[in-house]
Computed example of a mutant assay.
Amino acid sequence: MQDVLVPTAVTPAHTTRRQRIAAGVRDSFSAGLGIFPLGIALGLLVLQAGLPGWLAPALSLAAFAGSLELLLVGMMATVTPLAAVALTVLVVNFRHVFYAFSFPLHLVKNRWAKAYAVYAMIDEAYAVNASLPESERSAARLLAMQISCQTYWVGGGLVGVAIGAALPAPIKGLEFALCALFTVLTLDAFRSRREIPSVLLAAASVTAALIVTPGVAMFTALLLFVALLLARHALTARRPVREADDA
């Protein structure tokens, strides 16, 4: 009787470094569909605000954060005081503190690579990584995905500057591109995870923040959402213990 070979599942331990890098680049495609056009919007906004074109790639390298860069363009155009800029940066990017709790930085061993992983921990990279099974994550795949995302962003900004220089009139509504991208990422994460309780907690947090502190709604919503998630985790952790005691 002839032996039958059963194919085994491919895991990061059985893949080459080149395969993991290729997988990371493929992971970035879905986010890149939103990042690249948003980068174009940034380049266009820079020129429409009367700022030099080199500012688009400079911002994309110095402060790799899409929502913050779009805000900084308007602040720089209106010469906003430095204290207001610093407070805005803190409020807008404070959510990245919570990303670090579940972002797999432990996979990256090289200190320079880990520093880049922290620097490039943007919303899109977090959302894409969160949709991957734990067994398929690796440092090479993570870094390849992050580098690809930044390439889309910088490249989009350069294209936007080129387009803006050729257009005779400004384009309205470009600022909505960021909101549209976050909406798509949220829907994609929900489709892959089916975390209905988390979605409901997030909606409740945003609603409460808009009512109580509309001026700093994002900051309040993040803190409230984290508090609700911790409370939910505590409740779900106690439930198995109680069920074991009852049995």
Rank of each mutant, 00 (worst) to 15 (best):
M1E: 11
V4I: 13
V6T: 14
T8S: 15
T8P: 05
T8K: 12
A9P: 07
A13K: 10
Q19F: 02
Q19T: 12
I21F: 07
A22G: 15
S30D: 03
I35F: 05
F36V: 00
G39Y: 03
L45H: 06
L45E: 12
P52D: 02
G53W: 08
A58C: 06
S60N: 13
A62C: 12
A63S: 09
E69G: 02
G74T: 07
M76D: 00
T80I: 04
V85H: 04
T88Y: 08
V92K: 05
N93R: 05
F94W: 12
F101D: 01
H106I: 00
N110I: 02
A130T: 15
A130P: 03
E134T: 13
R137M: 10
M145P: 06
Q146M: 13
C149M: 04
C149H: 12
T151C: 06
V159T: 15
I171N: 10
K172M: 03
E175P: 12
R191N: 10
S198D: 08
A208F: 14
T213V: 10
A217W: 03
M218F: 11
M218W: 05
T220K: 01
A221K: 00
L224F: 05
F225G: 14
F225K: 02
A227T: 08
L228A: 14
L230N: 13
H233A: 10
A237L: 14
A244I: 11
